[in-house]
């Protein structure tokens, strides 16, 4: 396990440096920092892939069972999906939002036990990793939507008030940000839906019931309805721009609460404590 922990820490360090570079790149007008931030992040991502692969080989299961593992996995999907978006839209600014978020997830990860969980036999089902992977992929995509939403609101405020800060010159156009919102929704929503369905199937095999109104399930359902409303609004009524951006930000807030809040404040079947018996 020590190799794995070492790799995890190096990855975290690289993300930390990348975050610093992004922040300097955004605050100052130094193009070089922004470009190097992207390279650093790519390097960090490769390291992260190795970290996860080593752990997978060592434990023999997709590393999503403990809080530590799922935090690391969440950060990994976040960075990976950002890099895919970077290839498509070439927007460095997005990274200035996503990289710190991934870093925070990793830091929280260090405070949790990195011990390989003695897996509860209930979880020893093929549906479990499928459920978690789909759900976290959905979360990561919605995180991008939320970051695009924040950028949209900043940019829109400047265009409306006609007061421009240096940031204005580096933000992508409103149309680009809005189309990111839509793209995220069309990919994130099916993933989230499949995540919930696969979770229900797994719950049925583990506990003998598809849906138990456990707090995490309830909050996930609330978030799902929120995104469903946004998708519906976009497709039929012509919602877009500001409203879509605000929805994406609130929606991600709900997702974060579902992920953390439920574990921290409420108890239920989804609490990792129940999984690992700690």
């Amino acid at each position: 396990m020590t190799v794995n922990i070492l790799l995890f820490k190096i990855t975290l360090l690289v993300y930390f440096v990348a975050t610093i570079f992004y922040l300097i790149g955004v605050i100052s007008r130094k193009e070089r920092f922004r470009q190097n931030a992207v390279y650093l992040l790519i390097g960090g991502f490769v390291l992260h892939c190795i970290t996860l692969a080593v752990r997978w080989v060592a434990t023999g299961a997709i590393p999503v069972a403990s809080l530590h593992e799922s935090l690391s996995f969440f950060a990994w999907t976040l960075v990976g999906i950002y890099l895919i978006f970077y290839l498509r839209y070439r927007t460095v600014m997005l990274g200035a939002f996503i990289t710190p978020l991934a870093l925070v997830l990793m830091i929280i990860g260090t405070t949790t036990s990195a011990q390989a969980p003695a897996l509860n036999p209930m979880l020893d089902s093929w549906w479990f990793p499928v459920h978690v992977t789909l759900a976290l992929l959905g979360h990561a995509i919605f995180a991008i939507a939320a970051a695009a939403g924040v950028m949209y609101l900043l940019q829109e405020r400047m265009l409306k008030s006609k007061k421009f800060s240096g940031l204005f010159y580096r933000l992508p156009s409103l149309d680009t940000l809005d189309s990111m919102n839509y793209k995220c929704l069309t990919f994130g929503f099916p993933l989230m839906t499949m995540g919930i369905i696969s979770g229900a199937i797994w719950a049925n095999s583990a506990w003998g019931g598809y849906w138990r109104w456990d707090p995490k399930e309830t909050w996930a359902l609330i978030s799902w309805f929120l995104y469903a409303a946004l998708l519906h609004g976009r497709l039929t009524v012509g919602w877009r721009g500001r409203r879509a951006a605000i929805f994406a930000i609130i929606g991600f807030g709900f997702l974060l609460f579902t992920f953390f809040g439920v574990n921290l404040f409420l108890s239920g079947e989804h609490s990792f404590r129940n999984f690992t018996g700690q």
Partner: peptide, 24 residues
């Protein structure tokens, strides 16, 4: 340097603002 990158005439500024809204 970005010394020549932002429009400094009214009509160019209009085109540039349009790009900030519409992208294309």
């Amino acid at each position: 340097t970005a010394i020549a990158s932002n429009a400094v005439s009214v009509s160019f500024a209009a085109v540039e603002l349009a790009r900030k809204i519409f992208d294309r």
